[in-house]
């Protein structure tokens, strides 16, 4: 039997705004499955986003949804989680939103290890504004603002998250659709800040400028560059050249922020 996504989608809100071939819809379905797996109470779950194509995702979900300003989703979400720690808080957004304009909020959410799940759809481009380069656009790639090739080095979002203090970091791709919900579910269950980076595609504004003639070409790129961490352990450095590791990249336990604050309240109250 086909999976029933519609019970999680707000009536009348489809079709979505994403272009044919965009991976964001695949990620949304993965998120819906993960929320079901974790049996999240939709009355007590907030899905928060910034601005951009990926950030339109919350509007489709039948839960408490907050579409904020560009880059600020993690900070809005932090306010929700602090004020109401029993609420499940999920942040979704793109690479530009999360690591350029929102980079400061992203690293500090990681540092606090506040119990939220941040699903970041990395399609290496600013799609909504028509394809300008982001901090995740490969060096040399073409964007509407790098017609001579991108001169900028790139962020590795997962490494950035680990370095900043996130305690669960996983990476998947829009091609490996069945893995997405498992990674997100693991992130939701994790106590602390979980970052799930999903390598995504934007055929409309990235693909057509970078010799990916079709959506299938873009998907093939995701398929071919991804190497599961388990497989990578048996591969040589040479074999791993140009590849991207997928799966759970980092998983550790550290004090969670709202729990630490609850202890602070007890100290302040002299308990």
């Amino acid at each position: 039997m086909a999976y029933d996504y519609e019970k999680s989608i707000r009536p009348g809100k489809l079709p979505h705004i994403w272009c044919p071939g965009c991976g964001h819809g695949i990620v949304m379905k993965g998120l819906i499955r993960a929320m079901d797996t974790c049996e999240l109470d939709r009355d007590n779950t907030a899905v928060v986003s910034g601005i951009g194509c990926a950030s339109r995702l919350p509007g489709y979900l039948d839960t408490c949804t907050l579409h904020t300003a560009h880059g600020r989703a993690a900070a809005f979400a932090t306010g929700i989680k602090m004020a109401k720690p029993d609420m499940n808080v999920i942040v979704v957004g793109g690479d530009g939103d999360g690591t350029a304009i929102g980079g400061n909020h992203f690293i500090h959410a990681c540092r606090r290890n506040i119990d939220m799940t941040y699903v970041i759809m990395n399609n290496s481009i600013y799609g909504m504004t028509g394809g300008q380069f982001s901090p995740c656009t490969p060096t040399g790639a073409k964007a509407s603002t790098t017609v001579y090739g991108n001169p900028d080095p790139t962020f590795d979002i997962s490494k950035l998250a680990i370095g900043a203090g996130a305690t669960f970091v996983a990476r998947g791709t829009a091609y490996h659709a069945v893995q997405i919900d498992k990674l997100i579910a693991e992130g939701i269950r994790h106590k602390g800040l979980a970052v799930i980076e999903i390598l995504d595609d934007c055929p409309t504004t990235y693909g057509r400028r970078n010799k990916f003639r079709s959506v299938i070409d873009m998907m093939k790129r995701l398929k071919e560059t991804a190497v599961p961490v388990t497989a990578a352990a048996k591969m040589t450095e040479e074999q791993l050249e140009g590849k991207v590791l997928t799966g759970v990249l980092y998983n550790t336990e550290k004090p969670e922020y709202t729990e630490q604050y609850a202890k602070l309240i007890k100290r302040a109250q002299g308990a």
């Binding site: 600020r72 900070a75 932090t78 306010g79 929700i80 004020a83 109401k84």
Partner: peptide
């Protein structure tokens, strides 16, 4: 709850998020 945010923008963002929960 008191939270010192990473910058002034983050502070008003957290403020609005908290206010939405009824605070």
């Amino acid at each position: 709850k008191f939270i010192q945010m990473e910058d002034e923008i983050g502070a008003i963002a957290a403020l609005i998020g908290a206010a939405l929960t009824g605070a």
